[in-house]
């Protein structure tokens, strides 16, 4: 019998307590991680993004959606860093500016996830497109359907004009 590569006794079975401890450690690590720090000024919210997490493409995608709502200015405070400055079009309270920055970062995450999903499903999309356009099976099916329609039409035609006279006369 061919070996499957790992026997059952090699599989590490994690107990409930271990999983809980791991989850707690992960949450603690997430909580200790620096979040996007936002500086609030007059009509202005500014923060710096790490480009290793938020790619330029995602920042552009988000900025494009916010251009109508506020003024957006991008800067490069350091290597792999993108500075974002959002200037409210009118007077705004600190809470409104914080909300604006929060919405921007949320949309940014949305764009990042969208890009990742796009990348991870690119091959299967290409496969389906190729199959839809170039599959001979599909063409055969269409040919069959057309032939079927022709047959039906001929059955309905009492004079069967489409039948050559040589064939109809025997």
């Amino acid at each position: 019998m061919a070996s499957t590569g790992a026997s059952l006794d090699q599989v590490e079975v994690k107990k409930g307590a271990d999983i809980e401890a791991e989850e707690a450690a992960a949450l603690e690590e997430m909580a200790s991680r620096e979040s996007v720090a936002c500086a609030i000024g007059e009509r202005k919210a500014a923060f710096v993004l790490d480009e290793s997490i938020y790619k330029k493409d995602a920042v552009y995608g988000t900025a494009y959606l916010f251009i109508d709502r506020c003024f957006v200015y991008l800067s490069r405070p350091g290597e792999s860093k993108i500075g974002v400055e959002l200037v409210h079009r009118e007077e705004a309270t600190e809470a409104e500016l914080e909300a604006l920055a929060g919405e921007f970062v949320n949309e940014l995450l949305n764009q990042v996830v969208r890009a990742q999903v796009g990348e991870s499903t690119a091959r299967i999309r290409e496969y389906y497109m190729a199959r839809a356009f170039f599959s001979t099976d599909t063409q055969t099916t269409i040919d069959d359907l057309l032939a079927e329609l022709d047959d039906e039409e001929l059955e309905e035609a009492p004079l069967e004009i489409a039948v050559p006279w040589e064939d109809s006369d025997g």
Binding site: D57, Y60, A63, Y64, I67, F71, V72, Y73, L74, V87, R89
Partner: peptide
């Protein structure tokens, strides 16, 4: 009050359109 910010917005818009 707005010209500089509007100019920056326009430059960013043109950049994004070209990038895409």
């Amino acid at each position: 009050g707005v010209l500089k910010d509007a100019f920056c917005n326009h430059a960013l818009y043109e950049t994004i359109v070209r990038f895409r």
